[in-house]
Amino acid sequence: MANLVIDNVKKRYGTTEVLKGINIAIEAGEFLILVGPSGCGKSTLMNSIAGLEDVSEGRILIADNDVTYTSPKDRDIAMVFQSYALYPNMTVAQNISFGLEMRKVAKEEREVEVQRVAELLQINHLLNRKPAQLSGGQRQRVAMGRALARRPQLYLFDEPLSNLDAKLRVEMRTEIKKLHQKLGTTIVYVTHDQIEAMTLADRIAVMKDGEVQQLGTPQEIYDNPANLFVAGFMGSPAMNFIPAKVVSQDGAPMLELATNSTVSLPFPKPDALANHIGQTVLLGLRPEMITEPQPHKVGQNFVTTTDIKVEVTEPMGADTMIITRVNDAEINCRSNPAYPAAPGSVIEMMFDTSKAVVFDQATGQRLDK
């Protein structure tokens, strides 16, 4: 395994700049996920690391060696693709060992490596089958096995689970995480699925329009998003954004909401609001911070109870999403399924602003950094 440095990498197609100066340093053994909407540049960046795309400016270093202009075959990397890219006329064992054969590895060594990888991925019983005889999940395991057999310095995964159904995607996600924990390999993984990013990564790079909006651990990005885009992209359901007027109450800035009545919420960083009295900001609050009244939270500094009118409920088994409107914004609240919340009824809900964030309405930037 090796470290990876992406140093001010830019990519242009004519006058269009697709990557706008990407800077990311990845430690050896780290699992980094590039996440963002379609067209944000994450696949272009992945292809640049692999050597499949030439960069316009900047450097790429693997194991402290500058590989910016090195051909893909000399970068000592292995890729796992969305499309599996298996040879249909070869058996599973032959697919796994093909790369080793191309590198002139002795037959005995190839056979040992195939067995090692097959045991690791639990596909021993599939070694004599051909790809057409495999399910989607089995094909993805074979594609991973082919990459693992090479023992490269760096693994690149390009949306490897996007062709699988929802249940299989969850299972394969777990398998990839187990594999990383067992082998400690360096992985760069591209996805547009923020749940994959949250569950798999050591660190996440959230991308938009060819730029890294934020780089951090999943929890850092979830709790402290750098801007409105990151806050809205990461999390399912997404963070609520509520236009709230900043008012002064007993000399302290508060956030005024119109629920079924008018209520003022305290904010954990009042200094960030001091210069915005009388202005409207966007209050960012995760759905799990708006719940049915919870006795253990009563009396806490940033907890306020108020009435809301239920518009829609969405039972999800372990909890129920309650949709309501606050300050003309539709918001999601997460409640216990046993809590009575019929559509059209007015119920009591608890707002916990201890982890709330605020954004500038015009720029989308955080005001409370």
Rank of each mutant, 00 (worst) to 15 (best):
S38N: 11
L45T: 10
S43W: 12
I308E: 12
H296P: 10
I290D: 02
E175H: 09
E53L: 04
K73F: 09
G284W: 06
D76Q: 10
E171A: 09
I96P: 02
M234R: 01
A28H: 05
T174D: 07
S135V: 04
A341I: 00
H192I: 11
N124Q: 12
K177W: 10
G344R: 00
M316W: 14
K104S: 14
K245F: 08
H180F: 10
T320E: 14
N336W: 13
R286T: 02
I277D: 02
A2F: 02
I77N: 03
P152Y: 09
N301H: 13
L19M: 09
N332C: 07
Y87I: 11
S335R: 03
P131G: 10
P340L: 03
E330W: 03
G99M: 03
E288V: 08
Q361T: 14
T306V: 15
E256Q: 12
N301R: 08
V358E: 06
A28C: 05
M254R: 15
V5N: 06
Y339W: 00
R334Y: 01
F98P: 00
M1S: 05
H125F: 11
L120D: 01
T70N: 12
K130Y: 14
A272G: 07
C40H: 00
V67W: 13
E101N: 06
Q115W: 06
R110N: 01
N89E: 06
V9F: 03
D193I: 06
E175G: 02
A149C: 13
M316G: 11
A341W: 02
E330L: 07
S71E: 08
T174L: 12
E314A: 01
Q219G: 02
M234T: 07
G41K: 02
K177D: 13
L367T: 04
T313Y: 01
T262V: 14
D54W: 14
G278Y: 15
D250N: 15
R75I: 00
I323C: 10
D158P: 03
R110F: 02
E220K: 00
V55H: 02
L61F: 07
L45E: 08
E220Y: 02
K297Q: 13
R139F: 05
Y13W: 07
M254S: 12
A63P: 07
R146N: 10
K130P: 02
D54E: 14
S335C: 08
C40P: 04
V55Q: 03
A318G: 13
R203C: 06
Q214W: 03
N301P: 06
K104A: 11
I323S: 00
V112A: 09
E108S: 14
Q138L: 14
I204W: 09
L215C: 00
Q94W: 08
V263M: 04
K178E: 15
Q82D: 13
A78G: 05
R116M: 01
T306M: 14
Q115E: 08
I322M: 04
M350G: 01
K177Q: 13
I60Y: 01
E256Y: 11
D352G: 12
A201Y: 11
Y339D: 11
I323K: 00
L255P: 05
P343I: 03
F98Y: 00
E119I: 04
Y87T: 13
R203L: 09
V35D: 07
E211D: 10
A166R: 06
